[in-house]
Design a protein around this nucleic acid. Sequence first.
DNA 1: CTTGACTCTGGACTATACTCTAAGGTTTAT
DNA 2: ATAAACCTTAGAGTATAGTCCAGAGTCAAG
Lengths: 132, 132
Amino acid sequence: MIRIGKLAHQSQVSRDTLRFYEKHGLITPSARTDAGYRLYAESDIKRVGFIVSAKKVGFTLNEIQQLLQLEVTKDIKSCQDVKEFVDHKIQLVNEQLTETRRIKKSLETLSEACCGGDEPATQCTILDTLNR
Amino acid sequence: MIRIGKLAHQSQVSRDTLRFYEKHGLITPSARTDAGYRLYAESDIKRVGFIVSAKKVGFTLNEIQQLLQLEVTKDIKSCQDVKEFVDHKIQLVNEQLTETRRIKKSLETLSEACCGGDEPATQCTILDTLNR
DNA sequence: CTTGACTCTGGACTATACTCTAAGGTTTAT
DNA sequence: ATAAACCTTAGAGTATAGTCCAGAGTCAAG
Ligand SMILES: [Zn+2]
Ligand SMILES: [Zn+2]
Ligand SMILES: [Zn+2]
Ligand SMILES: [Zn+2]
């Protein structure tokens, strides 16, 4: 059983973040000392690792909470359930990708139409376009 | 000079949003009635149009504030200034694109490794990977 | 036995972009 | 004249993901 500072160091997150995750139901220390210090067991440490890994692949905290539900109840969940969850996330990411690409294109079109010269921007096509 | 409701309708934003923009220094009505009602002139209407257009191509409100500065002082700004601003934004968008692509790849790798079958997820490669 | 390192709680603050509510005043149409 | 529609303000709430702080208690070492 380790205390919060050590877990924070090991997991590369801040103490504040661990307490924040706790407040949002992502992780709860298995025990407390008499003085009220949080004590984390092996399983808690693993759980934090899970959260960190899931963050790295782009899941939000809300999604991670759902993933943790799947993990904890994996006996009564199927690979299908898990895969569907990930595939749904991929769809969301794809939508975001499409939107970001659209924005990139718009900006590039804007940029390409502008001469970028030294003259005053009174006739700048970028400003003109935004003014339409 | 039109009132907020009409401008909101014309510009396809809510009254609340217009007041929100005002609070954040993006637009100020040219006048007020005796009763304190906001009155918007032609130039105000154009300015809202500018904001809406800029939003559509992905600028944040903060960036739009800077763009409006460029627009207002276009006499003493050059096309170069404007283009550089846009090009800098394109860089930011590209970074976001790179990150989102990385996430997509990670998720796809995750998904592809999972059989997606009916059996319990006790050995699911997705959960295993996140637990590492 | 005191100093420094560590921990606790609750709450405020950051950034982004609104959205909604309450309580009240104004304008317009019938 | 009165009801509907419109407007005002301040402030709270939403979602996301923390970060920081104050004031106080705890623990190990010299
Ligand atoms: Zn030019
Ligand atoms: Zn230009
Ligand atoms: Zn499987
Ligand atoms: Zn699986």
